[in-house]
Nucleic acid binder design. Structure first.
Length: 450
RNA sequence: GGCCCGUUCGUCUAACGGUUAGGACGCGGCCCUCUCAAGGCUGAAAUACGGGUUCGAUUCCCGUACGGGCUACCA
């Protein structure tokens, strides 16, 4: 039987990092086994739901690259779904729930109580054969000892989570439920419900939770809790996914940086860890850097341009080759794309502002002769590539009797206005001779009389 | 309170019952160097505690402590 897994978020206005990892593991398991990945929206809480909240979930999953085989087509139209086991929004499945509730009632497996409907739960230990945790003998709690039955339909007529979740998994033919460990205890209810509905329960795999750095529960406000943080924060999906992957799953060797295609091949449930993991933003940033630097020029440009635009830098007038060459000098320097505009703005606009503290140190009269010699050297260059420029700097340095650093600072200031940036010789090559000379000329006035 | 799950460097993790307990992030040092990074080398850093079982426990069992989850007419 083909594997069918699902991710069933409820639209709360953001996709929680833990939910993202649950989605990732489900997706990976589906792709690894050649099964189906279903997206189901648990939008039963009408007060809290909104189209916007659903869009956020869908956008976040798309951004992460977790595509689904069945589920909503997009967030702009609630009725549009793909797959033949729908609808995929719980808000549209009321008749289905009603049918099963009636069946339970008719079979006396459920009964009315103070306007609500309660499920007749057996007063006995339920064995859960969990694919990750192992066999769990879920004994009754003291309350269940007193009354094992639980409400499945509230007195206002709305079925509760446990019921709709089970009915949906049943109707959608879900074979493996991979979800957070916070549902482990409730699994006894779900198994009983499946059996009462005349079906075999699916296989369960409960994965550990993601906690804050200090071990507390991650809530919406905590740093990094929402996938939106990464989308807006200049992260790349592959980096976030790689970090999430290793938070709870281990390849059992020393490999850390993964391409998603390789993960699909290697991923499986037995390598999922059992203990909760703490969230470490620094390590996530490192993974992000590793993946950002290895992006193809096309993808880097595509992802970077929106961040330049947001920072008010218009790169539209430059051709792709120039943009790529410029980005190439920055690629291995930035950890997040949000750092890029500050790092590369001089490629796309005139230098009008200077790091004054740095300028006060290096745009000084005693440097004037050096800068003049450098300008002369650069103006005479036939080829304007990094190696030639560097060789020219060395010659001037020797002739003037100063170290390279003395020459580099004023020119970097002229070309970029900044103290830090890409390799000077490479950046000059990209800028081109004309712009470089013009920018050097424009700082001559600041040098005073040599 | 009851029930369930867990516990290896600060963090993520590796280790058929026999290893100098390995790797990664972060942190420190050195090297490289036009800035900032990167890179190379290197240092500090862990088996929660107590009992068993065993020739030998990080590893198996029990207990304690600690952490997390669930215990709703929340999801």
């Amino acid at each position: 039987m083909s594997v069918r897994v699902r991710f069933a978020p409820s639209p709360t206005g953001y996709l929680h990092i833990g939910g993202a990892r649950t989605a990732l593991f489900n997706w990976l398991y589906a792709r690894h086994t050649g099964g189906q990945f279903v997206l189901r929206v648990e939008d039963t809480d009408e007060a809290r739901n909104s189209q916007e909240a659903i869009d956020v979930i869908i956008e976040s999953l798309r951004w992460l690259g977790l595509d689904w085989d069945e589920g909503p087509v997009d967030g702009s139209d609630l009725t549009a779904s793909k797959g033949d086991r729908g609808p995929y929004f719980q808000s549209q499945r009321k008749e289905i729930y009603q049918k099963h509730i009636q069946a339970l009632l008719d079979a006396d497996k459920a009964y009315e109580h103070e306007g609500a409907i309660k499920f007749r739960m057996k007063r006995e230990t339920v064995v859960i054969d969990d694919l990750v945790v192992g066999q769990v003998d879920r004994k009754l709690t003291d309350r269940e000892e007193a009354d094992p039955d639980f409400v499945i339909v509230r007195s206002d007529g709305k079925p509760v989570f446990h019921l709709v979740n089970v009915i949906d998994d049943l109707e959608m033919g879900i074979t493996h439920v991979i979800r957070g460990e916070d549902h482990l205890s409730n699994t006894s209810k779900h198994i009983a419900l499946f059996k009462a509905l005349g079906a075999e329960p699916p296989k369960y795999a409960h994965i550990p939770l993601i906690l804050n750095k200090d071990g507390s529960k991650m809530s919406k406000r905590d740093l990094g809790a929402s996938v939106t943080t990464y989308i807006e924060g200049g992260f790349v999906p592959a980096g976030v996914v790689n970090y999430l992957l290793l938070l709870g799953w281990s390849p059992k060797d020393d490999q850390e940086v993964f391409r998603i295609e390789d993960v699909i091949e290697r991923f499986d449930l037995p390598q999922i860890n059992r203990q909760n993991a703490r969230f470490d933003f620094d390590k996530l940033k490192w993974f992000n850097y590793e993946h950002t630097r290895s992006l193809s020029s096309d993808e880097f440009r595509e992802r970077a341009l929106p961040f330049l635009k947001a920072a008010g830098i218009d790169a539209a007038g430059f051709d792709a080759a120039y943009i790529d060459a410029a980005f190439e000098t920055c690629k291995e320097k930035v950890k997040q794309l949000t750092e890029l505009p500050e790092f590369c703005d001089f490629y796309f606009r005139e230098v009008t502002e200077f790091d004054e503290e740095h300028a006060a140190k290096h745009l000084v009269p005693e440097n004037r002769p050096h800068v003049e010699k450098l300008r002369e050297m650069l103006a005479g260059l036939e080829a304007f590539d990094a190696d030639t420029i560097q060789a020219g700097f060395k010659q001037v340095g020797e002739a003037q009797g100063v170290k390279l650093g003395v020459l580099v600072h004023p020119i970097r200031l002229a070309c970029t206005g900044k103290k830090v940036g890409p390799s000077l010789f490479h950046l000059m090559e990209v800028l081109g001779k004309d712009k470089v000379l013009q920018r050097i000329d424009s700082i001559m006035g600041r040098l005073g009389e040599g």
